[in-house]
Design a binder for these strands. Sequence first.
DNA 1: TGTCACGGTTATATACTATAACCATCTACT
DNA 2: AGTAGATGGTTATAGTATATAACCGTGACA
Lengths: 174, 174
Amino acid sequence: MKSGSPARGTSRGASAADSKLKASNGGDTNGAAATPLRFGPLADYVGYALRRAQMSSVTGFLDAMKEVDLRPTQFAVLTLINENPGVRQNDICAALGLQKANFVPLLNELQRRGLAVRKEGVADRRSSALHLTPAGMTLLRRALELHTEWERRILARLGTRGRDQLLVLLNKLL
Amino acid sequence: MKSGSPARGTSRGASAADSKLKASNGGDTNGAAATPLRFGPLADYVGYALRRAQMSSVTGFLDAMKEVDLRPTQFAVLTLINENPGVRQNDICAALGLQKANFVPLLNELQRRGLAVRKEGVADRRSSALHLTPAGMTLLRRALELHTEWERRILARLGTRGRDQLLVLLNKLL
DNA sequence: TGTCACGGTTATATACTATAACCATCTACT
DNA sequence: AGTAGATGGTTATAGTATATAACCGTGACA
């Protein structure tokens, strides 16, 4: 439906770049269908593993959240607005690493759906104070339930300890 | 220059969704600039951590590889072709989770740069057998050097053990 | 021989990200 | 007070990545 799951290499326990640059495969890999490919060093690259994990994560998220129809960024924005009522757009952008220009249509959509609103900034009339509408709060509450359910499935794969380790390791990459 | 690094939450050691849905911030967060935001449960979400780590990884990759001017996908494709000379386009697509339609311009670009070529399939005249050109091999060799250097920097942050743990954990998410 | 599956291509739509220019407002300094 | 520069938000635009459907030539097989 969403994405053909990428096959992954044999991921030996080896440490770093070992099979430097030799083809090391018999003749031309041709003829039979469904050829299993040699991944070479690719199988042990952190960047590549991250990429696949993130793709899988996004499709899992979209699948889990299809009832509320929220994309990852939208969900994050709603969460941040809820946690920081009256927050300015720029702060949300800085927090999530978004471009302020790209935030405009994103928030427009949330506003169109009646989930969030821009109110006039009181101290600074340039800035808009962001708030969730009651509908937005209700939807976010449901989204949090769905998200918790999804993370429970992740936890089943990683274990609580594995998940905490993963978070620590990922944060070291920033 | 590349991307404003997204600030990250306080990431308490707590386990799962705890601070459910209460604003819990004094009044409106307005007035002072550079407001540090409450991230709420977002700080502990695997998907969110993955997203940021992957963004950071991509910019790091592009920075490390700018001498050879290869994007992550291009690098992966060159590696796979090198490891499996004569491979078919569809197999590369399946291996990397790409859409075959999107692979066409990607390979066109590699061919335009003289790094890879489509040769006629011998057994099946529909399929094209992909090969690296000598120039492609030379560039890939240099790219592997640069990539190894980059992964060395990653290793400095994670430690060998941490890196191996990370790979195992990420693979559990697929 | 005719039907169907498959490899590759084209065309197209959507989403995400990035940059530059612009307006209104605020701040700071003279 | 008044001006210069910084800031919040918007618009316009471009490039990249991803997804779908339709199509053509070829191969497999009844």
